[in-house]
Design a protein around this nucleic acid. Structure first.
Lengths: 334, 334
DNA sequence: CTGAAAGCGCTAACAC
DNA sequence: GTGTTAGCGCTTTCAG
């Protein structure tokens, strides 16, 4: 593997000249430049990002922490982050948090060991205090889909409560009163927010809350079928259901099909959705879209601002949008 | 950020002693070790992977090239690769090929710039010759789900032809004769192999091939609905259908639902499947499982063997397995 | 506009 | 067992 000194030797110049030409710093005699470029081509020279990192104290790497790789959600996120990073000629390092604070800590440790310039954290298990402590360290980071007091500038957030409200309101507007809810794990901040939205929508409409109408899932498909089964067993009078994740909705829908339940004729459905899975169900399911792509892109922009010490003017808070499909029917038409 | 020399100074020893202790090389006085460890803890010291890479000429990074991040397939692959790599204390770098030879080349270039120790390539667009040329370079790599002559040792392969045959045979065994096929893009080696399996199954059973029974998709869900629509329009006598990807099967199934077509009563279905999407459909779809997880893990093992110059005894060729679900019915029962 | 020389943080002979 | 001394491949003052 050719090194800069080989190029310099072949071109008959000093290493620093080659370095400057590579980095486009200053002016050079056209002749010098030509010779150097020719030498680089001839030797098939590519500067070592590693050596460069050491010399510049900047690795050009960005760490992305996610909870898990499986499922479409993470891929979407990563896709956006990588594309944006490509524009800034930065490398992406990923690590999963393995569903524990310890795992997330280890992942960040790896980023640190690699001397990443900054991190994008989709952290679900580190506490607000952990994060605030991390913010005292010199490495900048942004938080994706998380709000931590005192770290507002680094938070890319989404209004989960409003989103859930939108989805549930849509059912209420269609005349539904007995609305079930499959929530996410209530140990997670965003799950609680979504659940909260469900509650608020009911309250706003003057519908009394009934705990037998809610079932806690774990965001996975299997938990969706289990929840649907349990809910229907508990309450045969349910006319509508709201799921806090698309996977759980998929599971629920599968169960309803098995039961020969007609959607939306006998049961109206709305859901959360981040990767448009709801568009692929039958029937297609009306859902609030969680704009993870936009948020991921914004995260990179904000981090880039932090890294280059420039203020970034982007909106950090995202609002939900309801996408109407074929899973909801007015109650009156029964 | 503390450096090794700070630790050495605080512990009152030489840098190389600290280095040796970190890397567990040789013996040290218990006392020295204690002092050093204490100093490291006190300074919150973490060795710089970058400096270490430069000094050892080994980055401990492995590059993973994939075609695209979206969808569950890649996540599954990455999950396995990362876990295995974790065991060997290696870092994972990923890049997507963006569906072009140029994109794949760029991705590999990035790995090279970062001085990755080795690559795992899920390459779909580089030619066999490109790959053979790459094999002449000093950086070792393995090919995931690809067979290239002359590179057998580095190829982790799957018998796509046999897999498709299994899926189609299953339909034939149930008495079906008019079997449609939604193929993948026939520009891809593995797509062709799957299609080939369909043809061979027909031939073995003495069923004449009819081009109006096949439609080429692009592996995406949308192309599945389009293909299903087209096939049904062309041939109303189809009794069974085989899809070369789970996403396309999902699309097709959605279309069949819209058409009120009963599966498997009026139409039997089999599919390829890598992330068990077929288990989440309604009805669940009988499918041949593409063991991407096992293959990904094997890829790491083989690459690790290459990196440590040890022969690896693992089976590099994977065989399909049919997973029977609820989408197939004997033809006689019509 | 280009060269000389020091240094980024670590490891690896080689001494002692 | 531990210290000394060179690098690894690049950038970056500082001269000229």
């Amino acid at each position: 593997m050719a090194r800069i000194k080989d190029v310099a030797a072949l071109a008959g110049v000093n290493r620093s000249t080659v370095s400057r030409i590579i980095n486009g710093e200053g002016k050079f005699r056209a002749d010098t430049k030509r010779k150097v470029e020719q030498a680089m081509a001839e030797l098939n020279y590519r500067p070592s990002a590693i050596a460069r990192s050491l010399a510049t104290a900047s690795s050009n790497m960005v760490g992305l922490l996610v909870t898990y790789y499986t499922g479409g959600f993470f891929g979407e996120m990563m896709d956006q982050v990588q594309s944006e990073l490509d524009c800034h000629h930065k490398f992406l390092i990923t690590a999963q948090g393995h569903h524990s604070a310890e795992g997330e800590r280890e992942a960040i440790q790896r980023f640190h060991d690699l001397r990443c310039d900054g991190y994008i954290l989709h952290s679900r298990h580190l506490s607000d205090d952990d994060l605030r402590a991390l913010a005292k360290e010199p490495i900048p980071f942004v938080l994706l889909d998380r709000w931590v007091e005192g770290l507002e500038e680094r938070c890319i957030t989404f209004d989960h409560t409003l989103a859930a409200k939108l989805a549930v309101n849509h059912l209420i507007e269609q005349g539904h009163r007995t609305i079930a809810c499959i929530s996410g794990p209530l140990t997670r901040q965003t799950s609680v927010q979504r659940y909260q939205g469900y509650l608020e929508a009911l309250e706003d409409a003057g519908i009394e809350f009934d705990p037998s109408l809610v079932c806690e899932g774990n965001y996975g498909r299997e938990s969706g079928v289990a929840a649907a089964q349990q809910l229907l067993a508990q309450r045969s009078d349910i006319t509508a259901l709201f799921s806090c994740s698309e996977e759980m909705m998929g599971g629920a829908l599968q169960f309803f099909h098995q039961q020969q339940l007609q959607v939306p004729k006998q049961l109206s459905l709305t859901s959360f959705d981040s990767v448009d899975l709801c568009a692929s169900f039958y029937p297609t399911v009306t859902a609030v879209h969680f704009p993870i792509s936009d948020m991921a892109r914004t995260a990179v922009a904000v981090l880039h601002g932090l890294l280059s010490h420039q203020a970034v003017e982007t909106e950090r808070h995202f609002l939900p949008k309801l996408i109407t499909r074929n899973s909801v029917q007015p109650l009156t038409s029964y």
